[in-house]
Every structure is written in structure tokens, then in C-alpha cells.
Design a protein around this nucleic acid. Structure first.
Lengths: 153, 153
DNA sequence: CTTGAAAGCACTAAAAG
DNA sequence: CTTTTAGTGCTTTCAAG
């Protein structure tokens, strides 16, 4: 899965992560190349799956999504059918921004963005009514110190 | 901070979140409007800070960043000077993708992306040598079930 | 909101290193 | 094999109705 990238590729990726609206000419100038080679490298990296997609980043506060919870989940069930239902529920709920299966005594962690604590409770009640969960701890974020989509290159 | 958005604005945002590479004409067609009004709405939402920026989403696996940790931090220190140093350290480290200050007995949560467990240990040793930390629990992600930048609208 | 028009840009192909 | 040059048609941007 890992793709071979040279220094120029990495510079281009850094520019695209920082600002995907720049023109090819601008990127080419910054990385010390020119339009066509930069365009070819970007195309190759899209085909190779290094660049997944391009998206607009929105401000959650400006949209009224003022509450962010990290949810630690322990479960007693480990059957395939239960897991299938659980994953489906997570993927279908748009307020679940992240979901990971973990190693260790905590089985899952979720990141959930909602309007307020009440909206979180609605989400929580809906989730536990869909699938059996042994233990849930919700961690409420008081302050987003850092949140970036920029991967280190 | 919260901005008033109508249904058309929300449809446009949904399109931009799903794929920011679409042309204005395409977006306009999908939301049932035309080029200029869509362009004006997007400009207004950028000025209002609803749309923060546009970015390329990269595949961490393809870049060889195969390990993801959630780090739960408890601290005994709550002085301004300690906090300043701690936040600075987090903001400067590119492997820290997210950092939140929490309510409750856990003080901070981090999301950290690195090449492997060894790289995490290097990060961890560097962090605890920079700032005094009372207790750290690292949760290792075995599987990214879901990871989206798309906020619910 | 629509039309329309100017400027800029992405993308392609073909030439040159 | 990679870069430069050059051209076409689409897209953004903006002014006027």
C-alpha cells in the first residue's frame, strides 16, 4: 500500500494540504518546478490513492456544533453479528466523525460532534437502544487546542 | 459566531464537503440554482468563516503512517506557565493531529499519527521530557472504522 | 437571479532536453 | 524518462440589467 514518494512529491502534498485552492502555477513556483510536471505528479498520486479527495473544511462553531465528545466504549459482546450492527450504526450516524476499534480493555473510541449536551444524550440513547453496550464513558471537550487534517510528511 | 444559513447554503456546503473539486456549474446544477448565486453564497460563507479553507485529504496508510494512538493525559500541574509550555509543545508537533482540553478527571486527549509503535515511543519520551505529566494512557487503534471531515448540516 | 463577457486556469499533446 | 512549450476549451470572477 505504501507508495514511493520523492522530495518533490512531498513538497507538493504539503502545499495541497495547506491550501488546495492554489493554482498549479503557484504550487509549481513554491516547490521549484513547473506546471506540467506538478500536474502529472498530482495525477499519479491521486491514482495511487495517496490523495484521497479534496474537501472544504468548515468551522463547527460557526455551524452551531458547539459540543465535542470522545466516547470510550467497552462491550461484552464480540460476535460477528453484533459487530456488524454496531459498525453499521456508527457509519450511518453523521455526528460520529471518527470511530476506531482499539487494542486493550477499552474496545472502541468515538469522536462525536453535536449542537449541545442534550443532542449528545439523544445520540447516546439512540445508540444504546440499537446495540448492547457494556460500559460507556463520555469525555467532554472544553477546548479544541489543535485540530488539523495535515499529516506529517 | 453562529451564522444564519438557509437551505440552499446547507446544500452547497454539503456538496463542498463531499467534493471540493466540482465546478460551480456542477454544484449549481445539483443544488438547483445557477453559477453566480452559488458563487456569491460561497464567497459570503468564506468571509463569515463558515468555510475555513480547502484541503487535500491524504491516505495515512499510503504515506506509511500506520499507527494511530489516542492519548489520555492526567496532570497534577494547573499553573498558567505549565499549560503554556504544554500547549506550545502540542501545537508544534506535527504528529499531534488533535488535542482537546477535557472536563472531568482526564485533563487532555490527543490523537497522534505516527509510522509505528516505536515512533510513538519517541514522541512520548520527547513530550514527557518537555513537560511534567502525572499519568498517561495510550490507546492504540487497531482499525479505523470511520474517519470523516464532513460535519452534519 | 440572469446574462454575458474578460481573464485565468486546467488539461492535453507535442517538442525538446 | 522528464521537462518545457504552447494551445484549446472550460471555469472563475465580476459587472450590468
Amino acid at each position: 500500500m505504501a507508495v514511493r514518494l520523492d522530495d518533490m512529491d512531498r513538497k507538493i502534498l504539503a502545499e495541497l494540504q495547506a491550501d488546495a485552492e492554489q493554482s498549479l502555477d503557484e504550487i509549481a513556483r513554491k516547490v521549484g518546478s513547473s506546471k506540467t510536471p506538478v500536474w502529472n505528479r498530482i495525477r499519479r498520486m491521486k491514482e495511487a490513492g495517496v490523495i484521497t479527495r479534496q474537501t472544504a473544511i468548515l468551522d463547527p462553531e460557526a455551524l452551531g456544533l458547539e459540543a465535542c465528545f470522545f466516547v470510550l466504549i467497552r462491550t461484552s459482546e464480540h460476535e460477528a453479528e453484533w459487530q456488524r450492527k454496531f459498525l453499521k450504526a456508527l457509519r450511518e450516524r453523521p455526528e460520529v466523525l471518527e470511530a476506531h476499534r482499539l487494542a486493550g480493555d477499552i474496545d472502541y473510541i468515538l469522536k462525536v460532534r453535536v449542537k449541545n449536551a442534550r443532542a449528545y444524550d439523544t445520540f447516546y440513547q439512540a445508540l444504546i437502544s440499537e446495540v448492547r453496550i457494556y460500559n460507556v464513558t463520555a469525555l467532554l471537550s472544553m477546548e479544541e487546542i489543535k485540530a488539523t487534517t495535515m499529516l506529517p510528511l
